[in-house]
Amino acid sequence: MSASSARRTWQRFSSGERLARFTVFLLMAAALAFSMRTVQVIPEFLLDSPTQVMDLLRRMWPPDYRYYPQGIHTALMETLHIASLGTLLAIVMALPVGVMGANNIVRIPALNWLSKLILVSSRSVNTLVWALLFVAIFGPGPLAGTICIGFRSVGFVGKLFAEALEETDPGSIEALTAAGAPWPSIFIKGFWPQVAPAFWGISLFRWDINVRESAVIGLVGAGGIGMVLDTALNLFYWDRVSIILVSIFTVVILAELLVTAIRKRIL
């Protein structure tokens, strides 16, 4: 008896688990192989690419620094305003939707589902597609961009806010309820102090993402530096394109450093 147990081989996973893992890997490999075989790549274009890249770099260098005060600076400020105002709009919209989605505050499943639906549809449509929609509705310009950033960010901020609300400790809320506090007081004094750091952290993080996104929504006409970039691209002013890219890069890095610094202080 002891001899047979000594010879027993030990395995981490049951055979069912191994079969499931193997199937997943096999399906992934099959999907990759199928995609690689059928995707339409034109080999001539690929062979030509080193020449094209060299040409691109030669046209981009040196960057046209004099263009910065003329056209870039105002557009860059507009981009930052779009990102900030869009984030504020998202915060205002995410508060009610997030509260509606938290199943420990609103105990009506239908409303929870409605909130989930709003949040999921906000997240599954890409920012550029939102921008196209709002440009069609409000016409080209920063108004469309701001509303696009707001609608896109609601899904992100609202989902994480609802999750933070669901994880709150019920103790202080029970105490407030037992003392007969009205609903607004329970929310402001019971829930809000527990979720406020998470909420501000999420909003700051989203602002950082929005700075990146608002730099490109101008490509479809929604205002900001993207519109300047689009013009430069269409006119083949590659030296302007390079200075625009450098300024976007600088702003994005600065925004990230700022957010990291603030997060360290408030969290």
Partner: peptide, 24 residues
């Protein structure tokens, strides 16, 4: 950091110029 700070659309524009239109 370079890969992260530019939005995919900006990369896409540069790659369309480099390798032409299409899924590549």
């Amino acid at each position: 950091a370079l890969c992260r700070s530019f939005h995919p659309v900006i990369f896409a524009i540069l790659f369309v110029k480099a390798v032409g239109f299409g899924p590549l």
